[in-house]
Design a protein around this nucleic acid. Structure first.
Length: 479
RNA sequence: GCGCCGCUAGCUCAAUUGGCAGAGCAACUGACUCUUAAUCAGUAGGUUCGGGGUUCGAUUCCCUGGCGGCGUACCA
């Protein structure tokens, strides 16, 4: 750094180190695409990027310059540029500096597309060096200093560009399905729509506690009450819980709601969306995730929650007594927690016995009631709700139900949640009177869906860690 | 939360049983007019994550704190 600052001293008076703009005529991709013509006509191109290496041979110098889509090599000759200008590029410009070069395009003996530089200028001087080029950055530096990861690794850059393309594709899918994209509050006086602990904050002017949303659900349903028939939102949710390779405290959730639909309709939508993404970003609807082949082109498997469980336990657990369930939990070494209800035990058994086996895209349907306080009771099965979860590679990708729209039943479910909360369950949902009031005005039959976008991206770019698909994953402060 | 592993030059990593802290890249000086991880000769660069302890002597052993990775628990 000291050396670089000294170079700036030498340069300072004569050259602008941080100019305001650069008029570039071609990106590296455009130069490559039009190379034949540019070479034939000896067109002068203006190209810009970051210096990634310097290879000098005395009176000439080769400099790889990277731009977003790749890069080009620049060729500097002392004979062409003169002593003083050559000294600037040879001695005063460093790896990491941003530079604009202009000249004609040619190929070297070794077939490398190259710009023969006639003029060049600083676009920005770097006073810290780039990391070493042979080895990958350490995992910590990749996540903590993402700009270096992006500067050094084209694959990383491509991964995040792909993330953006996937989200764009999702938006066009919903546009074609005639859903309206909306925005709902991040700061909420009450949290709800999921079982999770929230982050809290404080509004000074109103002197009140506010919560960062854990889900968009209750606001989107208010819009259905208001007569917007198909709405969706892609938004950050915040959950005050642990972090691991599939969890970040803030994450992106896709939620959508459609009036007059039930969960069967939503299953169709989910399948259409994923198939489309797999066709666009995979190989004919097939994806490889962690070495496992996944097929989204075929109709997704469907299995009822209780049937899948019965399959693993050798008997139907619908009528099982609490004692029998406790025995089953013990048999499979699943820890028993205080206040665990019958349905929670079923859920634990399901997680342990069934989920790991759900590799190909599979809809699990018709869950026990207690676990789903916002879902409508099943039209033909007692004690169950009309709900599905989509599992792929053993993890949950989507969650959906026929939305509960009977305000009296919703109030009873909220009261049950309140009882859980008073019993010490800090993930239970509070009673949302404002939401109940909205329901009392009448919500049409509605299908709802939530999809964890980061996990969907992980699946589509074959990443095993959520950090790899988040530009700035949550990290503890360095000091 | 808990368990295991790690933290050494700007970056990526070495250092035998506790005995002078090293390499490659980056940097600096010099040579070289088509290089591709350019090459060649030389130079400089360290609070070994912080604090404490054991020892004649600690990067190394012990305690403690910080950060990271992996596993595990809850959750999407």
């Amino acid at each position: 750094m000291e050396n670089r600052l000294a170079k700036m001293e030498e340069l300072g008076a004569q050259v602008a180190l941080y100019p305001y703009a650069y008029e570039r005529t071609h990106t590296s991709e455009q130069v490559r695409a039009a190379e034949r013509e540019l070479t034939a006509t000896e067109t002068k191109v203006r190209f810009a990027g970051r210096i990634m290496a310097k290879r000098g041979t005395g009176k000439t110098l080769f400099v790889p310059i990277h731009d977003e889509g790749g890069g080009l090599q620049a060729y500097f000759r002392k004979d062409d540029l003169g002593e003083d200008r050559f000294h600037v590029i040879n001695k005063l410009m460093d790896i990491g500096d941003w530079v604009g070069v202009s000249g004609t395009v040619f190929r070297t003996r070794t077939d490398e597309v190259t710009i023969k530089v006639e003029e060049f200028e600083f676009l920005a001087k770097a006073i810290r060096p780039l990391p070493e080029k042979y080895h990958d950055l350490s995992l910590e530096n990749k996540s903590r200093r993402r700009y270096l990861d992006l500067a050094m690794n084209l694959e990383s850059r491509e991964r995040f560009k792909r993330r953006s393309a996937i989200v764009t594709e999702i938006r066009s899918f919903f546009a074609e399905e005639e859903f309206l994209e909306v925005e709902t509050p991040v700061l909420q006086p009450l949290y709800g729509g999921a079982t999770a602990r929230p982050f809290t904050t404080h509004h000074n002017a109103l002197d009140m506690t506010l919560y960062l949303r854990i889900a968009d659900e209750l606001y989107l349903k208010r819009l259905i009450v208001g007569g917007l028939e198909k709405v969706y939102e892609i938004a950050k949710d915040f959950r005050n819980e642990g972090m691991d390779r599939t969890h970040n405290p803030e994450f992106t959730m896709l939620e959508c709601y459609a009036a007059y639909w039930d969960y069967e309709d939503m299953m169709g939508l989910t399948e259409r969306m994923l198939r489309r993404l797999a066709l666009r970003f995979g190989d004919e609807g097939k994806l490889i995730y962690g070495g496992v082949d996944l097929d989204f082109a075929q109709p997704f498997a469907r299995v009822r929650f209780m049937d899948a469980l019965a399959d693993k336990c050798g008997r139907d657990l619908m009528e099982a007594t609490t004692d029998e369930l406790v025995a089953l939990l013990k048999q499979h070494d699943i820890p028993l927690k205080n206040g665990m209800g019958r349905d929670k035990m079923l859920d634990e058994l399901f997680s342990e016995l069934v989920e790991p086996g759900l590799v190909q895209p599979t809809f699990v349907t018709d869950h026990p009631k207690e676990l789903s306080p916002l879902a409508k009771a099943h039209r033909s099965a007692d004690g169950l709700v009309e709900r599905f979860e989509l599992f792929v590679c053993g993890f949950e990708l989507a969650n959906s139900f026929s939305e509960l729209n009977d305000p009296r039943e919703q109030r009873r479910r909220f009261e049950a949640q309140r009882a859980l909360m008073e019993a010490g369950d800090d993930e239970a949902q509070p009673v949302d009177e404002d939401f109940l009031q909205a329901l009392e005005h009448g919500m049409p039959p509605t299908g709802g869906l939530g999809v964890g976008v980061d996990r969907l991206i992980m699946l589509l770019v074959d990443s095993s860690n959520i950090r790899d698909v988040l530009l700035f994953p949550h990290m503890r402060p360095e000091e």
